[in-house]
C-alpha cells in the first residue's frame, strides 16, 4: 500500500497577535508548526501502516523552510518526505495548491491519501477534496475512524451532524481526517534524530510538470481584495447585578447573545 499524507507548515495561529498600533499581524518570531489536523493525518497514516503495512510518504508544498514540517513527519515515523517548492507556487489559492499537490501525488504514486480536515491558517478544508478531484479519486472527508480495510474498499466513519455515517469507500481514495482519528504521537527521540539525518526529496514546478498558468497566482481564480482586523472580539467582562438572581439573568442573556443557549 502506497500512502501519501499531505501536510502544511503553518504559523502557530494561536501565537499570531495583532499590533494594536499598526493593526497588522505580528508574525515576527511566530513559531511554524505542522498544521495540527495534518499531524492527525500523519498519525492516521502511521497507524494504517502499522496495521496493514505499506510505505508512508509525507508531502508538502511551501517555501524551503517547510522542510522542518516534513522532518517532524519523518520523526513521527513517515518513511519518506517530498517537498514541492518553487517561487512559481507563490500566491496559490486552494485550486492552484490542490493542482500542484495532485501532480506531486501522481508522481509519487498513491493508493491512499491522507489529509487533515483543514489548515488552521486558512480554515478552508478545500485542498483535500481538490486533490481528490484532480486525481479523480473517491474522497471521504471528516473521517474519524477507519473501521475495515478490504482489497478494493474501506469502511470508514464520517462525522455528520449529531453522530456519524458508516461509509463504504472504493479505493484508491483520499481521506480527510478529523482530530478524533487519533492523538498525534509525540516523536520519539530516536525518530527525531533519524529525521535529522534523512534526505528530503525536493521538486520544483518543472519536476512535477506543472504548467505555469495552473499554479501560483496565475492558477488562482480568487484574489485577496483586502485584509483587515476584525473589530468585534470578546473582552473580559465582569458581570454585576444587584442580586444573584439578576446576575444569573444577565449571564443567560449574554450566553443567548453568543448563541450558546
Amino acid at each position: 500500500m502506497r500512502i501519501v499524507v499531505c501536510v502544511k507548515q503553518v504559523p502557530d495561529t494561536t501565537e499570531v497577535k495583532i499590533d494594536p498600533v499598526k493593526n497588522t499581524l505580528i508574525r515576527d518570531g511566530v513559531p511554524s508548526i505542522v498544521n495540527p489536523f495534518d499531524e492527525c493525518a500523519v498519525e492516521a497514516a502511521l497507524r494504517f501502516r502499522e496495521e496493514h503495512g505499506g510505505r508512508v510518504t509525507a508531502l508538502s508544498m511551501g517555501p524551503p523552510q517547510a522542510e522542518t514540517a516534513l522532518r517532524k513527519c519523518l520523526a513521527m515515523g513517515a518513511d519518506a518526505a517530498v517537498l514541492i517548492s518553487d517561487r512559481a507556487f507563490a500566491g496559490a489559492d486552494t485550486l492552484a495548491t490542490s493542482f500542484a499537490l495532485a501532480r506531486a501525488v501522481a508522481k509519487i504514486g498513491a493508493d491512499l491519501i491522507f489529509c487533515g480536515k483543514m489548515a488552521i491558517d486558512g480554515d478552508t478544508a478545500q485542498v483535500g477534496p481538490g486533490i481528490a478531484e484532480h486525481l479523480s479519486l473517491t474522497q471521504v472527508t471528516n473521517v474519524q475512524k477507519i473501521k475495515e480495510v478490504h482489497a478494493d474498499h474501506l469502511l470508514v466513519e464520517r462525522v455528520c451532524d449529531g453522530g456519524y455515517e458508516l461509509v463504504r469507500a472504493k479505493t484508491p481514495a483520499l481521506l480527510a481526517v478529523e482530530k478524533t482519528v487519533g492523538e498525534p504521537r509525540y516523536p520519539s527521540v530516536r525518530g527525531s534524530v533519524l529525521a535529522q539525518q534523512t534526505e528530503i526529496t525536493k521538486w520544483s514546478a518543472a519536476d512535477i510538470e506543472a504548467p505555469e498558468e495552473k499554479i501560483g497566482l496565475n492558477g488562482s481564480p480568487t484574489q485577496v481584495m483586502q485584509i483587515f482586523t476584525p473589530e468585534t472580539q470578546l473582552h473580559s467582562e465582569m458581570l454585576e447585578a444587584p442580586s444573584e438572581d439578576a446576575l444569573c439573568d444577565l449571564l443567560i442573556g449574554k450566553l443567548r447573545q453568543a448563541e450558546i443557549l
Partner: peptide, 23 residues
C-alpha cells in the same frame, strides 16, 4: 459551510475551474 457543503463545493470548484471562498 457544513461538512457536506465543504466536502463537495471544493470538488465542484475544481471541476468547473472556478474559485471558492471558504467559511
Amino acid at each position: 459551510a457544513t461538512n457536506n457543503g465543504r466536502d463537495f463545493a471544493a470538488r465542484i470548484a475544481v471541476r468547473v475551474n472556478t474559485g471558492l471562498t471558504a467559511d
